[in-house]
Design a protein around this nucleic acid. Structure first.
Lengths: 113, 113
DNA sequence: TGACAATATGCTTTTATTAGCATATCGTAA
DNA sequence: TTACGATATGCTAATAAAAGCATATTGTCA
């Protein structure tokens, strides 16, 4: 058996960002496209888009700015505010996870329980 | 916005115990009855019973031993093995949660993000 | 022996999450 | 002016988790 951890951010009781959503937003920024980020996570564009809308609605500010048309069809990237927010959340999640893993390893051997 | 944490135990990729299930099992032992524990958590006996069965199936050993009939209709309590297991899990979850909360407070003020 | 309180389960309904399908729009470049 | 690749969104279907309904069984005690 193994210990699992999860960390996320809520606003007014609603989930804004967890590990998965954070990774998706970072991928959008890295790849410059919602479509390509969705491909990377093997989800539909539709689904990725729905996730973004939900995050924006719950956080209360715009996360992704998009460009329509053009030779490459358009593109997307994080707003500056979103970028700062997401990076801060991502590093916090990783830190908390590392802390928890370390403690579990100290207490038991490996991740076994 | 605030940080939330969750810790749980898995076996072969399936959830065995999280905070809620742990509390339910401890309540069963404390109250000596599945029915009364279910009442305390405002869930149906049916639902509590289903949770117990799922935990047992996933952990691979019996958690709750029950008694049928009698003047008080019967009763339930944790097996010694389950008691040790659940208490160990419960204290680990609480420790990890306290660690995470402490770190978040250090980094930010309060639980705000 | 009949009432009672709790265990034991099957089955159905509700609710939530995820996945998938279908279409419209947009702006550049050939 | 048409093809292309990406954004934008509505609607439906498939799964999963939680809740609720209904009933049978059990053993003591009045």
């Amino acid at each position: 058996m193994e210990i699992k951890t999860k960390f996320w951010i809520e606003n007014r009781g609603e989930v804004v960002l967890g590990g998965g959503k954070t990774a998706l937003l970072l991928a959008i920024d890295r790849l410059g496209s919602i479509q390509r980020a969705a491909d990377e996570f093997e989800m539909s564009y539709r689904h990725a888009w729905g996730i973004i809308k939900k995050i924006e609605q719950r956080a209360g500010f715009k996360m992704v700015e998009t460009k329509l048309g053009g030779k490459d069809g358009g593109g997307a990237r994080l707003t500056p505010k979103a970028k700062a927010f997401v990076k801060k959340a991502d590093s916090l999640f990783k830190e908390l996870q590392a802390m928890a893993e370390k403690r579990v390893r100290q207490k038991f051997q490996k991740r076994s329980f």
